[in-house]
Design a protein around this nucleic acid. Structure first.
Lengths: 237, 237
DNA sequence: GGCCAAAATTGATCTGGGTCAACCGCGTTT
DNA sequence: AAACGCGGTTGACCCAGATCAATTTTGGCC
């Protein structure tokens, strides 16, 4: 992706009516703190395919996803890619020890983030253990997800991977958009393949197989879960 | 493994001369805090193969590994196992959100841990943001390792997996035992296979292949890196 | 030492998913 | 509307690693 020309809203946004107010890092802050916090972040927009940060970049900012979906991935020198996760509104990105991001992040479709410069954010945390605790919670949640994903990558068959992915993705959207058997899939087949450790052909074939068996219906921009129980059985867990 | 009969040293240990004093969670505490901290933990021994905690258990304790090696793993209902990591002295276990461990932990050989009851430990952290920050650091480091491992599981060949494992394991031991081309492997071939998402036969064959090519020598309880550069080239990153 | 069980190695064969290649559908450009 | 490009699907074939099946080696334990 080409270097992005980002649009920065100069000001005029308020944390208090932010869409992710309840679920993001800032959920640990009270009204007074929020007022102060407001000055630290700035909304930044990225359009489809733009890279928000790269693996080898020195970390200068933290990011709070407000809208849209991002793919988080690592590349091997020869170009093989592993997507380590998809980021959704409420997710917090940029934590690391080395001072460098250890994965890259691209926008899938239009994305809005709340960007914080590293230093002032660090200072703000300093005397607010509540916020640190919240960040720790998010890290631990991600760690748990990462371990689940290791099981999927190391020990599950292609069918199980795809079924587990569909259910897991639906589950994540549930918190954001409410329950639905229609599961939008904004990412490409290649993204799904790189997330599951498969090839694009295998993902495609598995989708059509699920459809032939009446478990799902492939619709434009996503799938419809016709038989959730069947898909759950396939996911085998 | 059968329910363990653990040996508890009644008292008489001191954090100040603990082997992992410098690297573990407690590295964030000063001398005075350490004095208080000392009363919270108790040393517990486990012998080879004993289970320290299980995936579905409710978390009642945190653990700081003092001596030995543990395998951390998740099981699928049908018995397939994925080892999500090996714990070494200095590693901190038990953090979670759900109130349940999300993986199981067995001793590989004799293990000593410093065990903390959840509630008092939580209270101790309460007004010690330094300790919380340290725990956060450890979580972030693990997260980074978890992502690397996802790349390995999803996108690397068997040869690359084995080579990367040997180098990674040597790297971890470096911090504990100093540099060496002799790499002890206390875990079984089955453990290695379940860590790499392979079968025991493939691990065994890959070892012998590496030996035939003169890259390593298989010795009792481990391997010797005869040609580190060759192994690094095989690991392909 | 000799015996047994578990761990590791090795060989033969099979197969799930990868690779290579053709093709389809659809939105965009000219 | 023809031509193009791109994401996705489908088919034919192949191979890395799994599976199945013997051995061989190792490690307690009387």
């Amino acid at each position: 992706m080409k270097p992005s020309v980002v649009t920065i809203e100069p000001n005029g946004h308020f944390c208090s009516d932010c869409a992710v107010r309840g679920s993001a890092v800032c959920s640990s802050l009270d009204a007074a703190e929020l007022k102060e916090f407001e000055h630290l972040g700035r909304r930044v927009h990225f359009s489809s395919g733009e890279t928000v940060f790269s693996e080898e970049d020195i970390t200068t900012s933290f990011y709070n996803v407000l809208e849209g979906v991002m793919r988080l991935y690592k590349l091997l020198p020869d170009g093989r890619r592993q997507i380590v996760g998809f980021a959704l509104p409420g997710d917090f990105l940029g934590m690391n020890l080395s001072g460098r991001h250890n994965f890259s992040a691209d926008a899938i479709g239009a994305v809005t983030v709340c960007q914080f410069a590293k230093a002032p954010f660090g200072r703000f945390i300093e005397d607010r253990p509540q916020l640190l605790r919240r960040i720790n919670e998010l890290a631990i949640r991600e760690l748990s997800q990462a371990r689940d994903h290791m099981v999927l990558l190391g020990r599950r068959s292609a069918d199980e991977k795809v079924a587990a992915f569909l259910l897991g993705w639906r589950e994540r959207l549930l918190a954001l958009k409410g329950p639905s058997d229609t599961v939008p899939l904004p990412m490409s087949r290649q993204d799904i393949a790189d997330y599951l450790g498969l090839t694009i052909e295998t993902v495609s074939r598995t989708f059509t197989k699920l459809e032939r068996h009446g478990a799902i219906e492939i619709i434009h921009g996503g799938i419809s879960l016709l038989d959730p129980a069947r898909v759950e059985a396939l996911a085998a867990a």
